[in-house]
Each structure stands twice: as structure tokens, then as C-alpha cells.
């Protein structure tokens, strides 16, 4: 367990360093006069003059040598001085905080939906005959083949544009959450239902499951006492792997539905080259990712204390 926590700590440092370095390279590699460009994006193309550019140059210390600038850049980052957005001028911390809330809401709703879909379907295909199994698994393979934004586009076309059941984009009411969360939930469930099914099949066919019935326990008692927890072990471990799909999914889904979360913010900032926001958003995503991974590790250890599962 200790080595695992240590590994996660190293990752945390790695995230901060990696994001800092990438954004630094990004800033230095902007074409043309950097100060001029940043000023242009900040104050609008018409309001740029050499004075504004000089202001920016001084503020971002663009004149120093690359190495010392790199050092300052990382030091700022370590103190979480993320600066202001080049587009809106608002402090990055506030922007990111605001986005984080929306992203968390979406991801938990999506995750909950995916569990609600995947677990019954997985158990069903593990316990019912070959026909049901093949049908359900075939259907999930089809969904799995669709990139998350394709699922999103289809849901959008069907439920928002064709039938007008839900709003096309935006946020604020529970109705706005439905389609983005459903998209995320479907794309996650299409993969995890197979994990649930394989795990359940393994447990249902195991000798300890059979032995419990031979001992005289009923089907239902056996499932409750020996099924649930044993089935959960690989499923929870798989959650760790799914975190990647979840965060990647969020980037796409938020962009598609204009959901004001971190993924939308990051994609937008990259398009607009708003470097402080890129940095802030990527940093929070990285930290969130490492944190959630640690959470999954702990959960795995709690369910199956036999040995720390490989992450």
C-alpha cells in the first residue's frame, strides 16, 4: 500500500511538472511577437499597440533567458499562482473552480448511469443463456465502436433536434444534464458491462460458488454472500482504467453540448491559445485524475485485501 501511495505522489509531482513544462514550451513556441499576440488576444485586435505589448512583455517576463523563465514559470506554478485568463482577464483559479464543479457533476452523473446500465446487463448476459448473452454483447460491441462524440451527436439529433425532448446545449436545469450524462454513461457502460459479465461468469462458474450451493445455501443467499463482492473485484479495478475514458469523454462531451466544464474550457483555451487557462485546466484534470486513481486503489484494497492490485 505504501509503495502505491508513493507512486501516486510521484505522479502528482509528474503532473505538475509535465503540465508546467508543456505550457511553457507552448508559450515560447507561439509564432510572431509573443507579447503582441497575447496582447491581441487579451485586448482585441484593434486595441493593440506597442504599449500594451510592452505591458504584457513585462508582466509575463518574456525578455528573460529561457532557463530562468522556465524556473520562474515552475515556481509560480508550485505556488498555484496561475495568473489571469488572456481572453476574459478573470483569475484562472476562479474560472477553473467554476468549471470543475460542472465537470464533477457531469462525471458523477455519467458514472452512476453507466453503473446502472452495465451491472444489470452484465449480470443478465452472464446468467441467461447464450442467445441473450450474444445479443447483449453484440449490441454493446456496436456502441463500443462508436466514438463518444458520435454517440453524443446521435443522441443530440434524436432527442434534442428531432423530438425536442431535451435542450440542445447549455446548462442550468436538470434537463440540460440528461443528454451529456447519458452519452458518457452509455460509452462507459458499453465497455464495463463486458467486465461485469466476464467477472460474473467466472464467479458463477467457480468452485467456491458451487460449493456454497452444495453446503446448502440457496441461490439468492449464495449470490449475496459470495457473488457480489467477488464479482466486484475486477469491476472496481477496471474503474481505474475507465477513468481515462471518462476524462477523455468529458472533454468531447462538454465541447459537444457546450457544458461549461474543464474539458470544454481546455479545448476552448487550446483553440484560443489562452495559455494560463490551458495550464490551469490541464493541471486540475491531472490532479483530479491522480486523486481519483488513488481513490480506486483504496477501494480495491478494501474490497480485496489479499494483495495490492497492480494499477
Amino acid at each position: 500500500m505504501k509503495t502505491l501511495i508513493f507512486k501516486r505522489l510521484v505522479q502528482l509531482v509528474g503532473v505538475i511538472w509535465g503540465v508546467g513544462t508543456l505550457t511553457f514550451v507552448l508559450m515560447r513556441s507561439l509564432p510572431g511577437d509573443m507579447a503582441y499576440r497575447i496582447a491581441a488576444s487579451r485586448y482585441g485586435q484593434d486595441n493593440v499597440d506597442s504599449q500594451a505589448a510592452a505591458l504584457v512583455r513585462e508582466e509575463l517576463q518574456l525578455d528573460q533567458g529561457a532557463l530562468s523563465a522556465y524556473k520562474d514559470w515552475l515556481l509560480d506554478l508550485l505556488q498555484f499562482r496561475l495568473g489571469d485568463s488572456l481572453v476574459s482577464g478573470e483569475p484562472v483559479i476562479e474560472t477553473v473552480q467554476h468549471m470543475l464543479g460542472h465537470s464533477l457533476l457531469l462525471s458523477f452523473a455519467g458514472l452512476a448511469l453507466s453503473i446502472a446500465i452495465a451491472v444489470p446487463i452484465g449480470l443478465l448476459s452472464a446468467s441467461k443463456g447464450k442467445m441473450v448473452d450474444s445479443a447483449l454483447m453484440g449490441f454493446s460491441s456496436l456502441i463500443r465502436a462508436m466514438p463518444v462524440f458520435v454517440i453524443g451527436v446521435l443522441l443530440l439529433l434524436l432527442f434534442a433536434l428531432h423530438w425536442n425532448w431535451f435542450p440542445v446545449a447549455g446548462f442550468g436545469t436538470p434537463a440540460h444534464l440528461v443528454l451529456p450524462a447519458l452519452t458518457l454513461g452509455l460509452s462507459l457502460a458499453a465497455v464495463s458491462n463486458r467486465v461485469v459479465r466476464d467477472s460474473a461468469k467466472r464467479v458463477f462458474g467457480s468452485s467456491f460458488y458451487l460449493f456454497s450451493r452444495v453446503k446448502g445455501l440457496s441461490k439468492w443467499t449464495t449470490f449475496k454472500r459470495h457473488g457480489i463482492r467477488n464479482i466486484a473485484v475486477p469491476v472496481v479495478a477496471f474503474l481505474g482504467i475507465q477513468l481515462v475514458s471518462m476524462i477523455e469523454g468529458i472533454v468531447m462531451i462538454e465541447s459537444l453540448f457546450s457544458w461549461p466544464g474543464i474539458g470544454h474550457g481546455l479545448a476552448h483555451a487550446i483553440f484560443a491559445r489562452d495559455i494560463p487557462v490551458i495550464q490551469g485546466a490541464a493541471l486540475v484534470m491531472g490532479i483530479l485524475f491522480v486523486f481519483l486513481n488513488t481513490l480506486v486503489d483504496l477501494l480495491c484494497h478494501w474490497i480485496d485485501p489479499r494483495g495490492v492490485a497492480e494499477s
Binding site: V10, G14, G18, I247, V251, A282
Partner: peptide
């Protein structure tokens, strides 16, 4: 081990997005 550990600390798409932003 250390290198891979750090690379795995960020979701792949985020790394690609940020690198793509450079050019």
C-alpha cells in the same frame, strides 16, 4: 518505471491536446 508512471498521470487525450496546441 518512473517515466511510465509520470506519463500515465495524465489521460492520453489531454497530453495529445496540449502537444497539438503547440503546432
Amino acid at each position: 518505471g518512473v517515466l511510465v508512471n509520470i506519463l500515465l498521470a495524465l489521460p492520453g487525450l489531454v497530453i495529445v491536446l496540449m502537444l497539438a496546441a503547440i503546432a
